[in-house]
Write a protein that binds this DNA or RNA. Sequence first.
DNA 1: TCTGGGGTCCTAGGACCC
DNA 2: TCTGGGGTCCTAGGACCC
Length: 357
Amino acid sequence: MARTILHADMDAFYASVEQRDRPELRGRPVVVGGSPEGRGVVAAASYEARAHGVRSAMPMSRALRLCPQAVRVPPRFDRYGEVSRQVMAVFRAMTPLVEPLSLDEAFLDITEQVASYGDAEAAGRWLKGEVRRATALNVSVGAGTNKTIAKIASDAGKPDGLVVVAPGGERAFLAPMPIRALWGVGPKAEAVLVAAGIRTIGELAETDPGRLDRLLGSRGPLLREMARGVDDRPIEPVRERKSVGAETTFAHDLADGGELRAALARLAGEVGHRLREKRVGARTVVLKLRYADFRTVTRRTTRAEPTDDTAAIRQAASALLDGIAEPGDRFRLLGIQCGQLVDDAEESQLRLWPRCT
DNA sequence: TCTGGGGTCCTAGGACCC
DNA sequence: TCTGGGGTCCTAGGACCC
């Protein structure tokens, strides 16, 4: 039997939360993100700002040139997290099979529940109404028989949309869409495909599998299946976190020295704190450096025992930095990422019963 | 125009062991 | 003196997502 999958995606989430919390911002172009002097980029833009060409991930300096009357708001991630918990609670009132993708977006498998709403369209309307009642915010919803269809359907209806793709209608729905709409096709894959004369998902679906493998490598078969409307990936309500990291871009490039080492200590503190909060230890510490010319390098070290200790993380990262930095180097970004996470409870089990490994 | 910060997943080469 | 193949772990880089 065909599944019924919803993809729910809040409209201009951070910007909408700001406009909701601050009525004086309503109806005005709002851009959430870091300052242009601090080399910030746009995290979210209200639809009023988008009308001027402002987009997510755009440098803030460019956004404010495109739309000088825009109000720039520094992000308040704690606040967005609170609202996100309300939204996810509404989703979970519908089905336990909710897979969050970010603060403002999730897949829902409502195969078991859809009949009790009537049909997918009615279920989608119910969800939009409940989210609006709980948060006074709009969510766009797409419905279909798999994740690919539901996701592209919710994108297609934005803002405040509800798009339902009936079983059997998958290929006709996807065919005219640009390949870039497909999950997993970014700038690089798009360029490769366009150079080969493949512009739409329909054209991708018709491409010879062997040719696609040569163009896309191992990702060819999966993307071709998705383009043909076939996608069996399940909704995964529980996904284990694999890493915890923090990074910072400096307002001005830094040489190695007191300021850089102080930033490193601050990042180690941040990461250590979050590891302890989550009750996990990390076996690997990765140092990330971006040079003034945007070249990025990483160096890592693996420990025998996991740690959540700030000083240990700082020392590991500092030793890695010693191995990279040359006199005269200037850096624009520094980051620390901890991986190979081990649950504290699991860890103590291993200590007590070493032979059980 | 001058490029954030949080992540996930994949590839490829080398070390090491059997 | 020359030479296997498989498996696992580690490292660095890169594509991609929101």
